[in-house]
């Protein structure tokens, strides 16, 4: 009996140990920080170290100070149209960028997947290669290209498209933000698409062609639906971080480019209001997580 039990328990434990690792990871690096931020979002600012009150010293302390917690910061977010507009503008910029990324990324991934096998690894390498340079330096390089006296102006003047006194005014506008985002996130779109397209069984397309299906139709009927998991993965990988993007709009955008990342920065650093900035962050998380969960549930049903 005893022998049999150990035999049963061992693989059971092994399986759980394996599953526990990602859960533990999420618990430690996602749930715990989230709870801390959520707790701060229910506090009030104070001139102190750290700059909010109440500060909880232990579990027993938590119960005595529970009454000090307040949802005022969340109410405050609804009172000023600034936050609403910043969320909306971030979502709009992320949506437009993701669509642009898909339009630019799909042909690249398609071309890579259709390239001769010997070339494919080199092409994947080429997509990853820019990562070897610091992200910040690459964004700075765009400043050099897009600024009024920059390379783009010089090139267009050289080609005679612009007169000698005309300049390109893209830098410090939203267009520059889109250029910067599409450039920076392109690998995150291309790689999942490539992974999906590469697995595609070419014989399906041959069969379609044999049966008289024109290439454009077979693309929309066969290739695109089969690459859908890659499209979804790529869109999520890009959309989510773009919503919270701070560096690119800060460097390439103008002062009027309103994004939630910049609003969060102003709350945290300029106002030193950790509670309100935590509330902004919690709302941002909800905005991003809820649609993803709904989407996943629907995927499961389907």
């Amino acid at each position: 009996m005893a022998e049999r039990r150990t035999r049963d328990v061992k693989p059971f434990l092994g399986k759980w140990a394996l599953v526990a690792v990602p859960y533990l990871w999420s618990l430690l690096f996602f749930l715990a920080p989230f709870l801390i931020i959520f707790k701060i979002s229910l506090s009030e600012t104070a001139i102190a170290m750290p700059p909010y009150t109440p500060v909880i010293a232990g579990v027993s302390d938590l119960w005595t100070k529970l009454s000090d917690f307040t949802f005022d910061n969340y109410v405050f977010l609804t009172e000023d149209p600034l936050y609403y507009s910043a969320y909306l503008s971030s979502l709009r910029i992320a949506l437009v960028s993701t669509v642009l990324l898909l339009i630019v990324g799909y042909p690249i991934a398609y071309g890579m997947a259709r390239a001769p096998k010997s070339l494919r690894n080199a092409l994947v390498m080429a997509v990853i290669l820019p990562f070897w340079t610091s992200f910040l330096i690459r964004v700075y390089a765009w400043i050099g290209i897009l600024k009024p006296e920059g390379l783009l102006t010089i090139a267009l003047q050289g080609l005679g498209i612009l007169g000698p006194n005309e300049q390109v005014h893209i830098y410090n506008t939203e267009i520059a933000v889109f250029i910067g985002i599409v450039y920076s996130y392109l690998p995150f779109m291309v790689l999942p698409l490539y992974a999906a397209l590469e697995k595609l069984d070419a014989t399906l397309l041959e069969a379609a062609a044999d049966l008289g299906c024109p290439p454009t139709k077979s693309f929309w009927v066969i290739t695109f639906p089969l690459s859908l998991p890659g499209v979804i993965a790529g869109c999520f990988l890009c959309f989510i971080p773009i919503v919270g993007e701070f560096v690119i709009p800060d460097l390439l955008g103008g002062s009027e480019t309103l994004m939630i990342g910049k609003t969060l920065w102003a709350e945290f650093f300029n106002n030193r209001d950790w509670p309100v900035s935590s509330a902004v962050a919690v709302v941002l998380l909800i905005i991003l997580v809820v649609p993803i969960v709904i989407f996943q549930n629907q995927q499961k049903k389907a």
Binding site: D80, P81, L82, E256, A266, R272
Partner: peptide, 16 residues
């Protein structure tokens, strides 16, 4: 006052 200051500044920069 800091909150008013930052809010005024944000509205100067973004028009919001």
């Amino acid at each position: 006052a800091q909150r008013v200051l930052t809010r005024v500044w944000t509205s100067v920069k973004t028009g919001m």
